[in-house]
C-alpha cells in the first residue's frame, strides 16, 4: 500500500525532475484534488512567519510515506498536504503543541520524529546514561580492586594463601601429580 503511494511520489518527483516547472506542478495538484491551497495572509511578515513555523513544525513530524524524512523535507504529496493542514491550523491561531497533538491523535506517537520522554520511551532517553554510569562504576571498581591487590602483593610475601582458589587448586594438583 504505502509502496504504491511511494511509487506515486517517486513518479511525481520524476515528473518534476524531467522539467515540469514547480508552478505548473502546483496547478496540476490543485486540479487533482479540487482544493485551493491555503492562501498566505495579506501581511508579508506574518506570511513569512507562518511559513517558517510551518517548516519548523513539519520538521518534527515523520512523513507517513517516506518514513525516514520529515514532513518538511519530503516531496510526497501526503507530506505537502500535511504541511497545508499545519499552515491552516497556524492561521487559525492553533499552537505548535495543539498541532502536534492533532497528528499524534491521527497517526499515534510514531508520527513524531523525536519520541516524547514518557513511558517506555524513557528507556531510550535514560538507557545510555544509565549504561554509561553502570559501566563507569564497574570499571572503577575493577581498577580499585586491582590496585588494592597490587598493594597487598607488595606488603606481604606471595605465598600459596594469597593465590586465587582456582590457582591454588591447580598448584596443589600439580604438586600431587609430580
Amino acid at each position: 500500500m504505502s509502496r504504491v503511494a511511494c511509487a506515486a511520489a517517486v513518479l511525481a518527483m520524476t515528473g518534476v525532475a524531467l522539467g515540469a516547472a514547480p508552478a505548473a506542478a502546483q496547478t496540476v495538484d490543485g486540479a487533482l484534488d479540487g482544493i485551493e491551497r491555503p492562501a498566505a495572509p495579506g501581511d508579508p511578515v506574518r506570511s513569512a512567519e507562518i511559513d517558517q513555523r510551518t517548516a519548523e513544525i513539519g520538521a518534527t513530524l515523520r512523513c507517513p510515506i517516506c518514513r525516514q524524512q520529515s514532513v518538511a523535507e519530503s516531496s510526497a504529496r501526503i507530506a505537502r498536504e500535511m504541511q497545508d493542514v499545519i499552515r491552516n491550523m497556524l492561521m487559525e491561531g492553533r499552537t505548535a503543541e495543539e498541532i502536534e497533538a492533532y497528528f499524534v491523535d491521527a497517526y499515534g506517537p510514531w508520527i513524531l520524529l523525536k519520541p516524547r520522554a514518557e513511558g517506555m520511551n524513557l528507556f531510550v532517553y535514560a538507557g545510555p546514561g544509565v549504561a554509561f554510569l553502570l559501566g563507569g562504576f564497574l570499571v572503577a571498581r575493577r581498577i580499585r580492586r586491582g590496585r588494592s591487590r597490587d598493594e597487598e602483593g607488595r606488603d606481604e610475601p606471595e605465598t600459596p594463601d594469597h593465590l586465587r582458589k582456582a590457582d591454588r587448586r591447580w598448584l596443589e594438583a600439580a604438586i600431587k601429580g609430580s
Binding site: S2, V4, C6, I35, P64, I78, F103, A106
Partner: peptide
C-alpha cells in the same frame, strides 16, 4: 466520495492506499 486535500485521510491517519 472525494477527499480534497486528504483532510479526512489525514484525520484517519491514512498512510497510503488501499486502507
Amino acid at each position: 466520495v472525494t477527499d480534497p486535500g486528504s483532510l479526512t485521510a489525514i484525520e484517519y491517519g491514512v498512510y497510503g492506499v488501499p486502507e
